[in-house]
């Protein structure tokens, strides 16, 4: 636990409280199908954890529940030891301020410049003077490599830059936990690798915990410490472990299918060519 900036949150047993603990989460539409069943996992401080799975397996649904946009049918979500759904309104908002989130498209406010986007949470939720807020916002943008673009408008930037700016905004209040929804989606390999590098740097230097929804293999291998794999048929976690373990040693068939889809597709394609 080196390089820690904030005081570690210590619970009574003396161990650090994990930033996120999900216990037997069940998601079902009223009178409809069950989407997720018995989803439980823990994310430790400084850990980059992935939520993997093929399209339609409930990754995004799980994320929407984790950030408190939707309520689960049963089960609990604990943020730094406190139940996310312990209250409504102001109390829920208080819990929500404990994490940051980067949405798939960045979701920057289009009528604000980058620095205004990053400064917005600081303006709303701190009592700092304007100059101090500006310095803090500038630091966050510099951290994601966007020095010099402070006064640019989001729509004048490339997709990768928008995603990095969105991370800067999620980092504004320096929460201990960041959710990233498909950080590599729609990016070219070079930009995507740069973003992966940034995520690892932030996790190691600031001991931030990351929860990433993704299905980009390169990004999974480059960033994740640990991952859970969801499956549509089994409606929940089918495998858990390091990316290496999931790719090569996991007994779960779904893991093998998920990680080796690239090469298998390749072989099939070659065979088809041969027969032609």
């Amino acid at each position: 636990m080196f390089l820690i900036g904030k005081q570690p949150v210590i619970n009574r047993s003396g161990r650090e409280t994990p930033p996120l603990r999900v216990s037997s989460l069940r998601v079902a539409y009223p009178g409809g199908p069950t989407l997720l069943e018995d989803v439980s996992f823990i994310v430790e401080a400084g850990e980059i954890m992935g939520i993997l799975g093929p399209s339609g397996c409930g990754k995004s649904t799980l994320l929407r529940h984790l950030v408190g946009l939707e309520t689960a049918t049963s089960g609990t979500i604990e943020l730094f030891g406190e139940n996310l759904w312990s209250g409504q309104g102001a109390e829920l908002n208080h819990h929500r301020r404990k994490f940051g989130i980067m949405y798939q498209g960045g979701a920057l406010f289009g009528n604000l410049s980058l620095i205004e986007n990053v400064a917005l949470p600081l303006k709303e939720f701190t009592k700092l003077k304007p100059g101090a807020i500006e310095t803090a916002a500038r630091l966050k943008l510099a951290l994601v490599g966007l020095s010099g673009f402070e006064y640019s408008m989001p729509d004048s930037l490339s997709g990768g830059m928008r995603k990095r700016a969105a991370i800067a905004r999620a980092l504004a209040l320096e929460p201990g936990l960041l959710f990233l929804d498909e950080p590599s989606a729609g990016l070219d390999p070079v930009t995507s690798a740069g973003l992966d590098q940034l995520i690892v740097t932030l996790a190691r230097n600031l001991s931030l915990a990351f929860v990433m929804v993704t299905h980009e293999l390169n990004s999974i291998m480059a960033t994740l410490d640990r991952a859970i794999l969801l499956d549509k048929e089994k409606r929940g976690i089918v495998a858990e472990g390091t990316p290496d373990y999931l790719a090569h040693q996991s007994p779960a068939q779904e893991a093998a299918a998920f990680f080796r889809r690239g090469s298998r597709g390749g072989i099939l394609a070659t065979q088809k060519l041969d027969t032609n």
Binding site: A132, T135, A136, L139, L206
Partner: peptide, 9 residues
């Protein structure tokens, strides 16, 4: 305790 915002301050 100090974080990056603290350093910025």
């Amino acid at each position: 305790a100090m974080d990056l915002n603290g350093a910025a301050l």
